[in-house]
């Protein structure tokens, strides 16, 4: 791994007024690999932060630490002013407030689409069945898969499954939504239908952390782009600044490889 301790993080975009997710001095190792190195990141309420970077840069891991699907070695993470609990009831309660969308959808394979969206409401929020179903149906309608409600996940296309997964997360009324490469497992023709749903969410003021390779989405929907490489945040900027005038060599190199085709 290249030592980058002297590279300072360039910050051009100031976080919004009210901090919702705050990561301070977060470090994590996978064995010998120092996958997150001294991460400091603040996400304001209503802000859309897109995390980009080369494979293995730690961006997915960063995303997963925010609801503690990955533990951290040191540092602190607070959500809405409360530090992330280590385990147990407190952690479950916090996770209910943090929506997560996975690369591989992870819809519950033995439950119908409708049941997938109802489950969390009933078992975690204690909502009664009728109200849960009503909400589930309206959310499925919102993401455009209302007609698939009674099918099983395996009967849906990838794009449809991912939209159901978004509806499932939204059903919990999360404070923040985490997207871990939501379009990376999709056929190209299905990417847009998922991105459109995410655009809508962003416009409606949802706080979002999006790990993605979709530069188009980053340009159009993000308030801020966070560029990671080798476990560090190398650059934070508005999309315009980042894409037209990246500061760090690492970002310039990365962009030159993925843009201008």
């Amino acid at each position: 791994m290249t030592p980058m301790s002297n590279v300072s993080v360039t910050k051009d975009a100031a976080p919004a007024a009210e901090d919702l997710v705050v990561l301070k001095n977060v470090d994590k190792h996978f064995g010998a690999l120092h996958v997150l190195q001294d991460i400091n990141l603040t996400i304001g309420r209503g802000e859309v932060v897109v995390v980009i970077g080369p494979s293995g840069s730690g961006k997915s891991t960063l995303c997963r630490t925010i609801n503690r699907l990955e533990t951290i070695d040191s540092g602190t993470i607070t959500i809405d002013g409360k530090p992330l609990p280590a385990e147990g009831k407190e952690l479950a309660r916090l996770r209910a407030d943090v929506g997560m969308v996975f690369q591989s959808f992870n819809l519950f394979a033995h439950k119908t689409v409708l049941e997938n969206v109802m489950l969390g409401q009933i078992k975690v929020r204690g909502v009664d069945k009728k109200a849960a179903e009503e909400k589930a149906r309206s959310l499925l309608d919102r993401v455009g898969v209302a007609t698939q409600a009674d099918k099983y996940p395996a009967q849906l296309s990838g794009g449809q499954q991912q939209r159901v997964a978004i509806a499932r997360a939204l059903a919990m009324d999360p404070k923040v939504m985490l997207f871990d490469e939501p379009t990376s497992a999709l056929d190209p023709e299905m990417i847009n239908e998922v991105l459109e749903v995410m655009q809508q969410l962003a416009q409606n003021g949802m706080t979002m952390v999006v790990v993605t390779h979709e530069m188009g989405f980053a340009r159009s929907a993000a308030n801020r782009v966070v560029f990671m490489a080798d476990g560090r945040i190398v650059e934070e900027a508005t999309p315009d600044q980042f894409f037209s005038n990246p500061r760090s060599d690492r970002a310039k190199d990365f962009l030159s490889k993925i843009l201008h085709h």
């Binding site: 147990g88 009831k89 479950a92 407030d97 997560m100 992870n106 997964a165």
Partner: peptide, 29 residues
Amino acid sequence: PVGQAEAARALGLNFSQVLSLIVLPQAFR
């Protein structure tokens, strides 16, 4: 798949709920 349990945990289900609602029903099948 591990993702099934992760998705369940991410919704805020506790260990016994993850096991009884998501993992065991699929394991039995």
